[in-house]
Amino acid sequence: MTIQNKPAANKNLDSIRKTIANHKRHDFIFASLGTLVIASLTITLLILFLDLVIDGYPRFNLDFFSNFPSRRAARAGILSAWIGSSLVLLVTFFVAVPLGITSGVYLEEYAKKNWFSDLIEINVSNLAGVPSIIYGLLALGLFVYSFGLGQSILTAGLTLALLMLPIVIVSTREAIRSIPVHIREAAYAVGATKWQVCRNHVIPYSYGGILTGVIIGMARAIGETAPVITIGALTFIAFLPPSPIGLEPPFINFDWLESGFTVLPIQMFNWISRPQLAFHVNAAATGAVIIMLTLLMNGFAIKLRYNIRKKIKW
């Protein structure tokens, strides 16, 4: 009996081995495919960066940063654009960060779990999914015309702040959520009020996580173009807004908030849209500046988050 069965069993074993080898081959093929896809994505990112740097290389000099845009491509620079971007981001920062953090603290620490907090929550996650150009339309209807702020730095800063807000709220909430309850309980046990717990414990401990969100949000705001175009920002600006810091008292003035402006991505878009190739070089150089800023900021944020995750104390 056993002797007769042996060839059959062998045959069976062979087919099983074949099947296993086949399946292992599938594994290998898929793993290679995955590696290939990820490698090509990485290479795309590299090409994107190198292409901009190589194309824009002839314009990397001090003049490019200290000249106004000009009809002659070789003399045009991004002075008004980078100053405009900085001032707009200043407004964005001072609006979005306090609002985002307090909103996050409210949702995480104060809000009772009911339909109302659910409503706010749904709203926050919906806002994160609204296309950025819709914020531009909101700003055009509300800030520019209803509030009469015009096409100013203030309007652009507020618009980008709206875009950044959901990012700050979400990161604040995530950071707060990772703080264990016993820290709060310990503070309550020695008689702290709710706000004291928040101010002295919850907010300081979630500082790193919030900072990560703020940096990512700011990096996004730097490159955001569509909403700023929609509010009607000018594309050719050959003047600077009034300086925020004066030489005479009170040293700080806010006239710049009402000034016209342009920002880096709009300057880049303007140069791409022109038919002359010489301007495309300028566009590439501007793009290289933008992408370097965003990559640096995002890289810093990622590193920061990694560090926080590594040295959590509790």
Partner: peptide, 12 residues
């Protein structure tokens, strides 16, 4: 990082 690349750069 790829998420962070501004869309105007992708347009270029």
């Amino acid at each position: 990082l790829l998420v962070g690349v501004p869309t105007v750069v992708f347009g270029y």
